[in-house]
């Protein structure tokens, strides 16, 4: 589904990704862990097409298409979704209007019929039920004045609505207390399916107690230095990133 080979990328002239190899198959959940500055968020942003990241070498293909030449909206239309670490507040932009514009943009790009107001609201209600959310967030401006937990839930709600093939969760656990974390994790788990792959980017192991990954990768200095099962996350938790860094330097 996603194949990344030898990816190198600069931010502000500084090389952050230094030859990253990574691939995800259909339905798989991969966790990417790593210390601050290892390049986790940069990787997520490069995949989603954010400006300001300069890819200098390597490739990233999504279902056979070269991802790196596409605009951010084209990537989303193909089925890529980024749940932001810091969801952006859009004052004055109504959440329902936003969700409808997003869904219809994607449907249109795929040549499918757009939803009218009635069928859209029906769909929204259905998705809210799956995630056990109430509809108060629909009437508000996108993320404006939302608490940290509400913002993250809104991200997962968007994901439920847009039904991506590949979702990248960028430090979705950051800034959440344990209750909010559980709500978000439950939402993510409800969206797991054999057709949907996920990349869970996180600093801490605790999110992985709730979202069980198939594969855990450790990122350090812009490269994946170790991959393994979910026991790797526990080992990291126990020994700390110093252990990996020390090994990485030794290697």
């Amino acid at each position: 589904m996603l194949a990344v080979k030898g990816l190198r990328a600069n931010v502000g002239g500084k090389e952050i990704l230094r030859g990253l190899d990574f691939s995800v198959g259909p339905g798989e959940v991969h966790a990417i862990m790593g210390p601050n500055g290892s390049g986790k968020s940069t990787f997520a942003h490069v995949l989603s097409g954010r400006e300001g990241y300069e890819v200098t070498a390597g490739s990233a293909t999504f279902e056979g298409q070269d991802l790196l030449t596409l605009e951010p909206e084209e990537r989303a239309q193909l089925g890529l979704f980024l749940a932001f670490q810091y969801p952006v507040e859009l004052p004055g932009v109504n959440n329902t209007y936003f969700l409808k514009a997003a869904l219809n943009s994607i449907l249109k790009a795929r040549g499918e019929p757009e939803l009218d107001a009635v069928s859209f609201l029906r769909l929204i209600k259905e998705k809210l039920k799956i995630l056990h959310l109430d509809d108060s967030l629909l009437k508000r401006a996108v993320n404006a004045g939302f608490s940290g937990g509400e913002k993250k839930r809104n991200e997962i709600f968007q994901m439920a609505l847009l039904e991506p093939k590949l979702a990248i969760l960028d430090e979705t656990d950051s800034g959440l207390d344990i209750d909010a974390l559980r709500v978000v994790a439950d939402g993510v788990n409800a969206l797991r399916s054999p057709e949907r792959s996920m990349i869970v980017v996180t600093h801490y192991q605790r999110l992985l107690d709730y979202i069980q990954p198939d594969v855990v990768h450790v990122l350090s200095k812009g490269r994946i230095i170790r991959s393994g099962g979910k026991e790797l996350a526990l080992e990291l938790e126990e020994k700390g990133y110093g252990w990996i860094d020390a090994e990485g330097q030794a290697a």
Partner: peptide
């Protein structure tokens, strides 16, 4: 640019995203 990217990352074209942000600004 952050706001624009957020909307585009949801599949919304750049021109529509700009209009939505302008209307949000005007909405007050």
């Amino acid at each position: 640019p952050e706001m624009l990217f957020y909307l585009r990352s949801r599949g919304i074209s750049a021109p529509l995203a700009r209009r939505m942000l302008c209307l949000g600004f005007a909405g007050e």
